[in-house]
């Protein structure tokens, strides 16, 4: 319930952070392009599934942290339990600065500072919320594969115990509690996304010198092992 959430002292923040402009509707077509920044982790549309982030169909009016089958950070579970519900104002505040609205979220995204872009994006998302009839029979949202990985590699079943050992190389920087200041969170990703990302680093089609180096020496089985481990890690 919205008021329940506001009771917990977020009202002042929302009031200050949200000028009337957030109420203005943006351009859904332009918002589709803005959504490109989200689609690495989120899907929306008829065939949307949970990926690194939850699928976003029907987000308007939904209580936070309630998409079936998605494992939320403790921070998001708390926010949802306190009554955070997604409406224009909340979405706008979250998109502007995710960590300010939900400190501790695993979402590794700095936010969108441009008000117009946020409005466009919200308009775009809204298309997938009003009622089923309004959801266009659009193409399924493109999967966020920035890299082709051969099906037999994707099909490898990882050994989570080996993954746990290998993960100790990751945890010098990436935190197992999912906090992500300065270094992205890698916990609880779907295995396939993890495997694709690591192969993209390995092939250097994603640029990051540390990750190119780390992924560079991992075998296909080792990447599968890491994916298997991090997909199931208990939050610590």
């Amino acid at each position: 319930m919205r008021s329940g959430f506001l009771k917990y002292g977020v009202a002042a923040f929302l009031a200050a952070a949200l000028p009337a402009s957030a109420q203005e509707f943006g351009d859904a077509a332009a918002g589709e392009a803005v959504f490109g920044r989200c689609s690495g982790c989120h899907q929306v549309g008829p065939s949307a599934r949970n990926r690194v982030g939850p699928q976003l169909n029907g987000i308007f009016g939904r209580q936070a942290a309630t998409v079936d089958g998605f494992r939320y950070s403790n921070a998001f579970q708390r926010a949802g339990a306190k009554g955070l519900e997604w409406h224009i104002d909340e979405l706008d505040a979250f998109l502007e600065n995710p960590k300010q609205l939900v400190p501790g979220t695993r979402m590794s995204f700095r936010g969108i500072s441009d008000e117009g872009e946020r409005a466009d994006l919200i308009a775009y998302l809204r298309q997938y919320s009003d009622s089923p009839a309004n959801i266009p029979e659009a193409d399924p949202t493109a999967m966020a594969t920035d890299h082709e990985v051969a099906p037999d590699i994707l099909a490898l079943v990882g050994d989570p115990e080996y993954g746990e050992y290998l993960s100790s190389e990751c945890t010098t920087c990436h935190r197992v509690d999912g906090q992500d200041a300065g270094i992205p969170s890698i916990v609880l990703w779907p295995e396939e996304d993890f495997v694709i990302a690591m192969h993209a680093y390995k092939a250097k089609v994603r640029e990051h010198p540390v990750m190119n180096m780390v992924a560079g020496r991992l075998s296909d089985e080792e990447i599968a092992a890491l994916a298997a481990y991090f997909a199931k890690i208990e939050s610590q």
């Binding site: 945890t171 010098t172 920087c173 300065g182 270094i183």
Partner: peptide, 14 residues
Amino acid sequence: YEESEGWYAGITAD
């Protein structure tokens, strides 16, 4: 630099 701050938090937690 921001990455180094993340690393510091990561290694001390580790």
